Simulated scan of single mutants.
Amino acid sequence: MRAVQNLFVLYTGGTIGMLQTAEGLAPASGFEARMRGWLADSGRTPSFAWRLQEMQPLLDSANMQQANWLAMRDAIVEAVEQGGHDGVLVLHGTDTLSYTAAALSFLLLGLDVPVLLTGSMLPAGAPGSDAWANLGGALDALGRGEVSGVQVFFGGQQLHGARVTKRHSEAFDSFCEPHRDRHGVRAEQIPQQLRYNQPRQPVRLAVQPLFPGLQAEQLDAVLKSGVQAVLLECYGSGTGPSDNQALLEALGAARKRGVLLAAISQCYEGSVVFDIYAAGSRLRDAGLVSGGGMTREAALGKLFALLGAGLDVAEAERWFALDLCGELAE
């Protein structure tokens, strides 16, 4: 751990910087001036130099796309390698903050600086807002010293970037790390093609929850939609309709066509362990790879990083099953 000396603040939009418009709250530029004004008014003097950059366009995070993640990655890498910054603070909307934290966790593998994300449930300046408390807490954490990697600071808590999820639509402590079973095997090293400075490209992904009544033709339509990977949210420890032969055949055919099939549990806590039940073993045999105790956000971010790096399906499956940054193992 080391204290940050030269902080890069990346303002992406989100509630924290929103102002009222005729159509409702919307992201607004000029947050650097507001932040400097707050620091002066509150008598806070950061122990480090800092510079703020606004992403263009500023986003309500409900509009977040893979291209925006790649733009964030590029801005962060440039700030560190060209600008000499040794810490990063990302200001982000709450709707997709946990998805971005997970994606950046895998897009920035090997980057030896702390990256902290924060935002707020109410805009800065609104009565009773949590914005300045979250921002101030994040700045204090970076000033004290942080380990490298991606984390989230929100509601007085510091959370792992590849384990965090949003649990509440209104509460100030709306983010948490659900208790997922994490007993995965850590990768001995990060391959060069997965490091932060390697090219990436967008990936076509889909999420399909299993539910009573899901028809094989419905699932087959998703599998044949041109996706490169499908994340199945299974029951319990990784079970599904094992007596539906047509559904199992649709999965098997998709895997033979080169679609990566990954499985996580629908449960808030726990993990996928296929061999507990025959209903899980049949899904594994159809071509699914276990996501262990990963959250939806972590699994999607990892699939995006692996396939976006150009790995073939077999290589992507191998790395998906190994812990890269704490998403699968404590």
Rank of each mutant, 00 (worst) to 15 (best):
A75V: 07
I76D: 07
V77T: 15
V77A: 12
V77N: 10
V77D: 11
E78I: 03
E78R: 15
E78P: 00
A79S: 13
A79V: 03
A79F: 05
V80P: 02
E81P: 08
E81V: 13
E81I: 09
E81Y: 06
Q82Y: 04
G83W: 05
G83Q: 11
G83K: 10
H85P: 00
H85E: 05
G87Q: 03
G87H: 03
G87M: 03
V88E: 00
V88R: 05
L89Y: 03
L89Q: 02
V90K: 11
L91P: 11
L91Q: 09
H92K: 04
H92Q: 15
H92N: 02
H92F: 13
H92D: 01
H92P: 04
G93C: 10
G93Y: 09
T94L: 02
T94V: 03
T96M: 03
T96I: 05
L97V: 01
L97M: 15
S98E: 03
Y99A: 11
T100Y: 04
A101R: 01
A102G: 14
A103T: 15
A103W: 00
A103Q: 09
L104I: 04
L104S: 01
S105K: 11
S105T: 14
F106L: 10
F106H: 14
F106W: 14
F106E: 13
F106Q: 13
L107D: 09
L108R: 02
L109M: 14
L111T: 06
L111D: 01
L111R: 02
L111E: 00
D112R: 07
L116V: 15
L116E: 06
L116I: 15
L117Q: 10
L117R: 10
T118Y: 02
T118H: 00
T118R: 01
G119W: 05
G119Y: 04
S120D: 07
M121S: 03
L122I: 09
A124V: 00
G125R: 14
A126Y: 15
A126T: 15
A126K: 12
P127E: 14
P127C: 09
P127F: 12
P127W: 09
S129D: 12
S129G: 10
D130T: 09
W132L: 07
W132I: 00
